[in-house]
Each structure stands twice: as structure tokens, then as C-alpha cells.
Write a protein that binds this DNA or RNA. Structure first.
Length: 683
DNA sequence: GCAAGGTC
């Protein structure tokens, strides 16, 4: 008898082979590894898929909508960038032709059930299989799953398939409707897209734009006093905080402005223990990498994937913040200690009798949190090195002791008005030794007692105004999507990238372009369902019913087809109108990017990013016929203006300079800059 | 060429 066990990914194949028998043999065909176990005339093959090997495809390639005539096809046929899936399918086919029994051992979730079943029916041409269900990749768990084989959960397969189909129906048809509208109006093809996840994500950003646009700043005043405390100056603030009444603020100020003394009324000294950080799940790694290195979530994910493939870190697409003892804490730390960069840190931990990592709340049925394997990296790019070090330091820190901080809160009284300040410092570094990324305030704590009198050096009244909510950046948007349950750990970063690629959004922090705005406006009117995250909720509910046998997949799909047919037909009647709106937005965005007129050929000057060096410069759109170009400072936030230089007549751009912006001629050699040069020399 | 979901 020959058995084929199908797993979701190569790493799991080896673990399962090992759990069944430590006498397994590794084999390889067509560049893909699989495992073979032989005993008592029985042979077991363990081979893997590589995620989904099959994808939905339109039966005949039309450009029309609405379309519902779709089927499963090998992923490499649908997406040319997924060529690697071909060799996984070939291997499964080959092994399946020899097998007479099949076991699906993919991840224990809806996608795992479906991708395993698709591999079974399409690659293995089989209908019957048993199912291994496991929630951890440890030997006992896998062993238990192997010895207690279950059945394939067909309702779960049906639900998974329905999810794919409904996403395809909604996404492809709405995307085509948008592109078609623009084509109808302007005869030009532009790629548009919409979907259950990306469109609500865009809507979140549009909502923020509207909040910012409609925000009415309110003036307020704050009172502060600079006090002499020991040898240092400390700024204390009035306890009332923001004062919105100008006359009251000024009255208070005139009462205090020539005050000389602040009387200490209360001194509170608190010690606190800050526990170590939790282990990294993918989302936490992405937000930390953005915070410290400004790496986008997608970049971080790609780097983590390559570190994983090189064997330096564990599986990165995890939502777990837990490190189980089975990974072998001490052994990993010892291995890391072989690397001079971590030798000292490792030694500190190895001196401990017991190693307990801090555990986070989030869990993942299939994987632990992200940790370094201990294998010493050979050659790393500078970005890879940053992420690798971050992961190692985070891992070590989770075993550290609590950090101890002391905080002093002081309340003083100046002519009867209460002013407070606080000072803080670290008493014991604890885990901070391992993870020194975030900056902390370190003050010397003054020796103060109630009744002490401090000298007031200055009292100030500052005017400010309330600020609109902040824009999202790629990392905070990914976190927001996670909070709202939109997308998955593996797809959220990509969704944000898609919005950039479609030019719906631009810049960091994220601004919505006229195109993004118009897409949401058009959809709000004609396909409002797709804007709302309620569509995801609706899907989840339907799928749950299918899984529990309370609803039939085919009926649910029929309902979706009927609803979309009605929506798409209405959309079609208004194509010209919608197309005009979108085409105007494209034109508006294009214009907003024109820096000015090319002095040589009269063409449009644009900001261009060099593919070779990655540097931004101003170049003529008529390149290669015209090669006019101007170098630019390499910073974000350089905008076009409608002004021209009064010395040379070239267009001017607005450049951020500290907190201000300056108008600058695009020609760095222009005499309009002489003033600056002179000043710089003098200064 | 268009979605969202897995993964090398």
C-alpha cells in the first residue's frame, strides 16, 4: 500500500515525515523535495503544495461584465508570476499516480481545507481522502493527528470555494465596470480595481481626508512656567491644559507673568515595572519595522520571507505572539551566542536558571511567533540585516527581566495656580539591554519636598490651534485593517501596495488622489455594498451557515449573481457619466504632477524616480527626444507650484525645510540661489 | 487586466 500525504507548504512536510518515523528519507524531483517512509511493505510519501495551487479563471477570456462563468485552473496558468507552482503540481501528480490512499494534512482552517481538496481532486485526480487535523507542528500533535485520521470536511470545502467565487464575482466585475466606464468615455484603457478588502481600505482613507478637509481648527492657549529645579530648567504646565477662552487665558497670564516663586505642594514618587515586549507576530514586526526604519509593511514582509527561506528565522506569516518551549529556547540562544554580535546578550540569558519568554495574547493554530533559528546569516543586505537584528533582539528581550522605571510627579502652586511637571528615569534596564530601539526619557530626579520653593524663570502663554486627525501611513493602515478584521495577515500589506499601484493614494503619510476620491464617489452611488466592510461581515455569516449545513453554497452564489447582475446593469446605463468623472480625475491628477514647462521643447516637466539609482529628479516627459533634467533634494513632499522664478523664468517647486516650506527654482545653479549661498558662507 | 487568499 502506498499513501500520499499532502501538506500546505514544504516545511510542514518534513515535520510530518519526522513525526511518523525518524527513518524518513528526503527525496527530490524537479527541484521540489518530498519525503518517503517505508516499513513493512508500506510506503508513505509526504509532499507539499505551495499554498493555493489552483485559482479561479474565466472560462473564455472576455472583457465584458458581468461575468460569472468561471472554473478552477492551475495557478501558473492564471498568474504568470506564479510559475513555481507548476513543479509542485507535477510532483503531486507523479506521486499520486503511484498512491492508492490520500491524506490531506494542510493547515486546519478554511483555506487549508480547500487548497488541500483542490490538490486532491485536480493534481491527484482523486476523490477520497482522509484528513490530518493539527493545531501545532510539534511531534506529539502531528503524531496524534496521524493516528486519529478524520474525514475531509466537505461543507468547509464548499464554504471556502464560495468565498473564492464571491470575491471573484464582486471584485472582477466591479473592476471591469470601472475600467469600462473610462474606456467608454475617453477611448483609453486604464486599470481600475475594486474588491471586498481594498475598497473599504480606500474608503477608510477617503473618510480621513474628509475629516481633515472639514476640520475647523479652534484656537487655544496654554500656560507654562519654566522653573529652576536644582541645576536644570524644567517646564511645568498649568493643570487646566488647553484654555479656549482667550480673555481668561490672558487674564491668568497677566496675573502670573511676573511671578517669582513656585511652591511645591505635592511630590509623588512611583516605581513601575515594565514587562518585556511580546514576541513578534507579523503585524507587530511590520509596525516596529516601520516605526524604527520606515520600512513599508510589504517590504518588511518580503524581507522576512527571504530570511525565512534562507533558514535564519521561523515562519513569518504568523499571527501568534507565543513562543512554545518546544522550539528549544536555550539551544537557540546558545546558537545565537556563537555570533559575536550577540555573544554578550546571550550570555546574560544563559546565566538564568530558567528561561521564560513573555507571551502575547494573539495565537495562531499553525505557527508560533517569529523567532531566529540560531543559524548564522552569511550575507545580508542592509535592509535584511536591520530586520534580522530587530527579530533577534526582540526574541532575546522576551526572556528579559522587567524594566524598572521611576516616575516623579510634582505639583506646584504659582500665585494659587496649579502647575505640574514630571520626571522619569530608568532604575534597572532589564529587557531594555536586549531591545534598545525605543528612546526613553532619562532625567535626574530632583530632590524635592513639599513646601520647597522653586524659582520661576519665565511664565509663557502660547497660542496654538486644535489639529485635524493624522493621516494614515502604510503601517498604521495595515494595523487599522487588522483591527477591523479586513484582509488577512498575509494580504493586508499587499492591499496597501495595490492602492498605490492604482494611483488611488500617494505619498507618506497617505493622501488620497483625485482618482481614489472619484472611485469611492462613483462606487458609493452605484455599488455601495463594496465600499462597506459590512460585505466582509456578510460573507463571514454566509460562509458560517454553509459550514454548518444551514445554507447551500450554490444558492448563496445564485443570490450573489442575481444581485450583481442587477447592480452591473444599472452601472452600465450610467457608464458615460461615471467614465467622465473618473477621466476628469485622471486628468486632474496628471496636471497636479506637472512641475512646469520644459524650457527646451515646451513639454511637461515631471518628478521622475530613476530606476537605476532610485533617486528623484525632474525630467521632461518627452524623453528620450528631450533629455532636459534637474536634480532634486532627495526628500519627500516636494510639490509643484504655479510660480516661476523671477530670475531665470523656470518653474518653482515647494520644498519642505524643517517645519516650514520654501519656494525654490528648479535650477540649482540659478542666480536666485546666490542669496542662500552667500548667507551659508557668512553663517 | 481586473479580487483575495494561500506560499516558494
Amino acid at each position: 500500500m502506498k499513501t500520499l500525504i499532502i501538506t500546505e507548504k514544504p516545511k510542514v512536510s518534513q515535520k510530518i515525515a519526522y513525526a511518523i518515523s525518524d527513518k524518513y528519507k528526503r527525496r527530490s524531483t524537479g527541484g521540489v523535495s518530498y519525503f518517503e517512509i517505508s516499513s513493512n511493505g508500506e510506503t508513505i510519501y509526504v509532499a507539499s503544495a505551495a499554498g493555493h495551487l489552483y485559482s479561479l479563471k474565466e472560462k473564455k477570456n472576455s472583457y465584458s461584465y458581468p461575468v460569472f462563468d468561471i472554473e478552477w485552473a492551475p495557478l501558473y496558468e492564471v498568474d504568470k508570476s506564479k510559475g513555481y507552482t507548476r513543479k509542485y503540481i507535477s510532483l503531486l501528480k507523479k506521486l499520486a499516480s503511484q498512491a492508492d490512499r490520500f491524506i490531506i494534512a494542510t493547515d486546519y482552517d478554511i483555506e487549508g481545507e480547500l487548497l488541500g481538496y483542490n490538490a486532491l481532486r485536480f493534481a491527484c485526480s482523486a476523490k477520497q481522502a482522509k484528513r490530518m487535523r493539527f493545531s501545532a507542528l510539534t511531534k506529539p500533535d502531528l503524531r496524534r493527528a496521524y493516528e486519529n485520521l478524520a474525514e475531509v470536511d466537505m461543507p468547509l470545502v464548499k464554504a471556502g470555494e464560495a468565498r473564492h467565487i464571491m470575491d471573484w464575482y464582486w471584485g472582477i466585475n466591479t473592476s471591469r465596470a470601472l475600467s469600462s466606464a473610462v474606456k467608454t468615455y475617453s477611448k483609453k484603457f486604464t486599470t481600475f480595481s475594486a474588491g471586498r478588502v481594498q475598497t473599504p481600505a480606500l474608503a477608510i482613507l477617503v473618510e480621513r481626508e474628509k475629516e481633515i478637509a472639514s476640520f475647523v481648527p479652534e484656537k487655544y492657549w496654554t500656560l507654562s512656567a519654566t522653573l529652576r529645579v536644582g541645576r536644570s530648567k524644567v517646564k511645568a504646565t498649568h493643570t487646566r491644559g488647553k484654555l479656549f477662552d482667550e480673555s481668561e487665558a490672558k487674564q491668568l497670564y497677566s496675573k502670573l507673568q511676573d511671578a517669582q516663586e513656585a511652591r511645591v505642594e505635592k511630590v509623588e514618587l512611583k516605581e513601575s515595572a515594565v514587562p518585556p515586549p511580546v514576541p513578534f507576530d507579523l503585524g507587530t514586526l511590520q509596525s516596529e519595522a516601520y516605526r524604527y526604519f520606515r520600512l513599508s509593511p510589504k517590504a518588511t514582509q518580503d524581507i522576512a520571507q527571504s530570511l525565512y527561506e534562507s533558514g535564519y528565522i521561523s515562519y513569518p506569516r504568523t499571527s501568534s505572539q507565543k513562543l512554545p518551549p518546544t522550539i528549544g529556547y536555550r539551544q537557540i540562544i546558545k546558537a545565537l551566542g556563537e555570533n559575536p554580535a550577540f555573544a554578550q546578550l546571550a550570555e546574560l540569558l544563559l546565566a538564568k536558571e530558567k528561561l521564560y519568554p513573555r507571551q502575547g495574547k494573539k495565537d495562531d493554530p499553525a505557527h508560533p511567533a517569529i523567532y531566529p533559528t540560531g543559524v548564522k546569516p552569511k550575507k545580508l543586505s542592509s535592509r535584511e540585516e536591520k530586520i534580522y537584528l530587530l527579530i533577534v533582539h526582540r526574541f532575546l528581550a522576551t526572556f528579559g527581566d522587567a524594566m524598572k522605571r521611576a516616575k516623579m510627579n510634582v505639583r506646584t502652586s504659582i500665585r494659587g495656580e496649579a502647575f505640574t511637571f514630571s520626571r522619569a528615569r530608568t532604575l534597572e534596564q532589564g529587557w531594555r539591554v536586549f531591545y534598545p530601539y525605543a528612546k526613553l526619557e532619562e532625567h535626574t530626579l530632583p530632590k524635592l519636598r513639599e513646601g520647597d520653593v522653586l524659582k520661576v524663570l519665565k511664565v509663557s502663554l502660547d497660542e496654538d490651534e486644535t489639529k485635524p486627525p493624522e493621516r494614515y501611513n502604510p503601517a498604521s493602515l495595515v494595523a487599522e485593517l487588522e483591527r477591523r478584521g479586513l484582509g488577512t495577515k498575509a494580504t493586508r500589506a499587499e492591499v496597501v501596495d495595490t492602492l498605490y499601484k492604482r494611483e488611488y493614494i500617494t505619498g507618506v503619510p497617505i493622501r488620497v488622489t483625485p482618482i481614489g476620491m472619484s472611485v469611492i464617489e462613483a462606487l458609493a452611488e452605484y455599488v455601495p455594498e463594496i465600499i462597506s466592510e459590512e460585505l466582509t461581515r456578510r460573507f463571514e455569516q454566509k460562509l458560517e451557515e454553509i459550514q454548518q449545513g444551514k445554507a447551500e453554497a450554490e444558492r448563496t452564489l445564485e443570490e450573489a449573481r442575481r444581485e450583481l447582475t442587477r447592480i452591473m446593469n444599472e452601472f452600465k446605463l450610467r457608464e458615460k457619466e461615471i467614465g467622465e468623472k473618473l477621466a476628469l480625475a485622471i486628468e486632474e491628477k496628471r496636471k497636479s504632477e506637472v512641475i512646469g514647462e520644459c524650457p527646451r521643447c515646451g513639454g511637461e516637466l515631471h518628478i521622475i524616480r530613476s530606476k537605476k539609482t532610485g533617486k528623484r529628479f525632474i525630467g521632461c516627459k518627452n524623453y528620450p527626444n528631450c533629455d532636459v533634467s534637474y536634480p532634486l533634494p532627495q526628500k519627500r513632499g516636494i510639490y509643484p507650484t504655479d510660480k516661476r522664478c523671477n530670475v531665470c523664468g523656470l518653474p518653482m517647486v515647494s520644498i519642505p525645510l524643517g517645519k516650514r516650506r520654501v519656494l525654490s527654482c528648479i535650477d540649482m545653479n540659478c542666480r536666485s540661489k546666490d542669496k542662500y549661498r552667500k548667507k551659508q558662507k557668512e553663517g
